[in-house]
Design a protein around this nucleic acid. Sequence first.
DNA 1: ATAATTCCTCTAGTTACTATAGGTTCAAGG
DNA 2: CCTTGAACCTATAGTAACTAGAGGAATTAT
Lengths: 136, 136
Amino acid sequence: MYSIGELARLTGVKVPTIRYYEQMGLVDAVERTSGNQRRYSRAELQRLSFVRHSRDLGFTIEDIRELLELSQHPEQSCSDAHSIAVRHLADTRARIKKLKSLERELRRLARCDADSIQDCAVIETLADHGVCEGDH
Amino acid sequence: MYSIGELARLTGVKVPTIRYYEQMGLVDAVERTSGNQRRYSRAELQRLSFVRHSRDLGFTIEDIRELLELSQHPEQSCSDAHSIAVRHLADTRARIKKLKSLERELRRLARCDADSIQDCAVIETLADHGVCEGDH
DNA sequence: ATAATTCCTCTAGTTACTATAGGTTCAAGG
DNA sequence: CCTTGAACCTATAGTAACTAGAGGAATTAT
């Protein structure tokens, strides 16, 4: 049995965030001690790890709710989980593309060595969309 | 002179967002018609483009406020603008790294062709951090 | 037993918008 | 000139995913 603080340490999810996840229905409202403190089992630890991991991968809370739902009905086809992942993959590729073009541009900006704002590439580039290399 | 709607069309920033930016001090509270409607000049169009462009690149509103401040004091050194860009570059590289490892993993997940949840790689991978390839 | 730490709930704040309600003004056509 | 429909106005509230703070109770360590 873990206290909420231990669970937080073990999963890397902050204490208030665990309580928030409980509100959102991502972790169960577990049993309490006589003094009203939450006590978590190993199962809850795993569930929270699942949630944390999913959040790290950029799934929304709504996505995770679906995924948890699915994982609790093992008889169903996995095509729903599959489609959530595919949808997410497209997103992710778009984000990578955008960020790469951003990185190119920032690298250029960060090379700025002008003495005054007049000649600063950062300001210039931001002001003039035509100067951009990428397609953001 | 542009109405707020024209400005929105020209910059790709939605009307309510322009009003929001005005509240946030990113665009000026411009003159109004006798009927209290905003009328923008070409200068405001450029300023809003700067803002939009900066947001696209992922700068926060606070960052942009600083950048605008800097761009209005051309006598200062550009080192502040520079450091904002550099800070942002580090962020961006970290995000790219994370997303790439995410993409690898999602690609793997999306290949899932199991018939039931039991064998679904999506659920499995999310549940078990040890299975991951990346370092998220 | 007492002190330090951790826990509890509840409310409000954060970022960057987006949506809605209820009302006014503008521009075009008759 | 007048009407009508689109675009405008303000103000409030909602969104996601937390984070912070107040004020107080329980647990743990000495």
